[in-house]
Amino acid sequence: MELLSLLFFLGLGYIVGTIAEKRHYRSIETRERQYLSLPAVTIKNIDHQGAKIESVALVQGSAVISVDYFKRMLAGLRNIFGGRVKSYETLLDRARREATLRMKKQALFSDIVLNMRVETSAIGKSANRKKSIGSIEALVYGTAITYRK
């Protein structure tokens, strides 16, 4: 019975998790194309080329993403042999890109985002458990500059 429920959770995690991840990636990619005209850079000082600055504001975006049961199991197995843990790579990648998009959404009417910083932290119950990451938060922030048109 226990094995059965374990298998059920694994299957559920795998199927729902994979579908959700694919859908998330598709939405990330379409939105990334939308925001192509708004660059976010990590440099602090740029040449404004004589443009007058209308406004300056701090913008931020964050996302908390968790892995599914199946992937967590997989990562646990990976711990035995070592090597690349792909399931966590996509987790972090999704969280960071989503957070970046949310920041850009806040800066929609600006021309450029300077000094973009990315910060990641493990949160939730599993933050103290050493082996599993569980869920992570990505925070992206920067200074949005709007030029006078």
Binding site: L12, G13, A20, S62, V64, I65, Y69, I123, G124
Partner: peptide
């Protein structure tokens, strides 16, 4: 917390946590 642990099974964004952290920030 309960919702989040359910969501932990299937993965994906934990909206409750995102909002909570954003509010606190």
């Amino acid at each position: 917390d309960l919702m989040a642990s359910l969501k932990n099974l299937v993965g994906g964004e934990l909206k409750g946590y995102t909002e909570l952290l954003q509010e606190s920030r």
